[in-house]
Simulated assay, not measured.
Amino acid sequence: MPDAPSVRARQRFRAAYDADPAGLWAAPGRVNLIGEHTDYNDGYVLPFALPHTTVAAAAPHEGDGWTVVSDDGSPVHFGAAEAAEPGAVPGWAGYVAGVVWALRDAGFDPPPARLALGSDVPVGAGLSSSAALESSVLTALVDLGGLDLPVDRRPAVAQRAENAYVGVPCGIMDQSASVRSRAGHALFLDCRTLDVEHIPFDVARDGLAVLVVDSNAPHKLVDGEYANRRSTCEAAAAALGLTALRDVTDLDAALAALDDDVTRRRVRHVVTENQRVLDTVELLRGGRVREIGPLLTASHASMRDDFAITVPEVDTAVETALTAGAYGARMTGGGFGGCVIALVDADAAETVADAVRRAFADRGFAAPDHFVATPGPGATRLE
Rank of each mutant, 00 (worst) to 15 (best):
T139L: 12
R180H: 09
G167A: 04
D174L: 04
G146R: 03
V166A: 10
V157F: 12
R192K: 05
S181P: 13
D143R: 07
A161W: 05
L138T: 01
A140H: 04
L133K: 08
S178L: 12
R182F: 10
S181M: 14
L189M: 08
P169N: 02
S135R: 09
D174I: 03
P169G: 05
Q159I: 06
S176I: 02
D143P: 06
R180G: 11
T193R: 01
S135K: 12
R192G: 00
M173E: 14
V168A: 14
S135H: 10
A156E: 07
M173P: 14
L189S: 01
G146N: 04
S135F: 07
I172G: 01
A186F: 04
L133P: 10
D152S: 14
L141R: 00
V157A: 15
R153L: 03
G146S: 05
E134S: 15
G167F: 04
L144T: 03
A140M: 04
L149W: 07
H185Y: 06
G167M: 02
G146A: 02
C170I: 06
V151A: 15
L144C: 03
A158K: 07
V166L: 01
Q175M: 08
G145Q: 08
L149Q: 09
V179K: 13
S176L: 02
V168E: 09
